[in-house]
Design a protein around this nucleic acid. Structure first.
Lengths: 68, 68
DNA sequence: GTCATATGTAAAGTTCACCTTACAAATTTA
DNA sequence: TAAATTTGTAAGGTGAACTTTACATATGAC
C-alpha cells in the first residue's frame, strides 16, 4: 500500500524527526513507512492523517484493491 | 479504539462467518475486533469500510484521541 | 574543510494483528 | 426438546509493526 507521507512531509518542510515526534513514533518508523517497507497501523494512520489535516483515505493509496 | 462493526453487521443481518469470508479473515478475527480485543490493521479497516460502504473514519471511533 | 543537521541502512528485540484448532454456550428452527 | 446454527472462549503459533542502538552518508552553514 502506498502513502503520501513523504510528499506531504516535504511540502510542509517537516523533518522525519519532527514528524516522528508529532506522531509519537521513532524516526525509523517514519523512514520505513515512507520507503514502503511496511504499512502503518490504523492508529498511526489516523494520527498521521490528523497531522496533515486530511482523511486516512486521502493519505493512503488503497488503489487496485489489494483484496481479491 | 472502538468500531461499529458489530452494530453494522447485525443491522445487515450478516453472520460473523459471512463477514469473515467477505473480508478474507477468520471468524476469530471478527470476534476479536467486535469485542475490542485488538485493533484492525489499516488494510483490514479499509476492507471492512468498503464492505459497509462507508469510510474508515465512519467505521472506527477515534474519539478522545488515543494519542496524548 | 569542519560542524551540525537530515537522511538512510542494518540488526536484534518486543508487541500485537491474525491464524489454527477445539470446545462450550447461546440462539434459532423444526 | 433435539438438532442446527451462531456466537464466545482459550491456547499456542507466525509474521509484521514498531522499537532501540549504532553507524554511514549527504547537505548546508560557517
Amino acid at each position: 500500500m502506498q502513502n503520501r507521507i513523504q510528499e506531504l512531509r516535504k511540502a510542509r518542510k517537516v523533518t522525519q524527526q519532527e514528524l516522528a515526534d508529532a506522531l509519537r513514533v521513532t524516526r525509523q518508523t517514519i523512514i520505513s513507512l515512507e520507503s514502503g517497507k511496511y504499512n502503518a497501523s490504523l492508529t498511526l494512520a489516523h494520527k498521521a492523517a490528523q497531522f496533515f489535516g486530511i482523511t486516512i483515505e486521502e493519505l493512503f493509496v488503497f488503489e487496485g484493491d489489494e483484496n481479491l
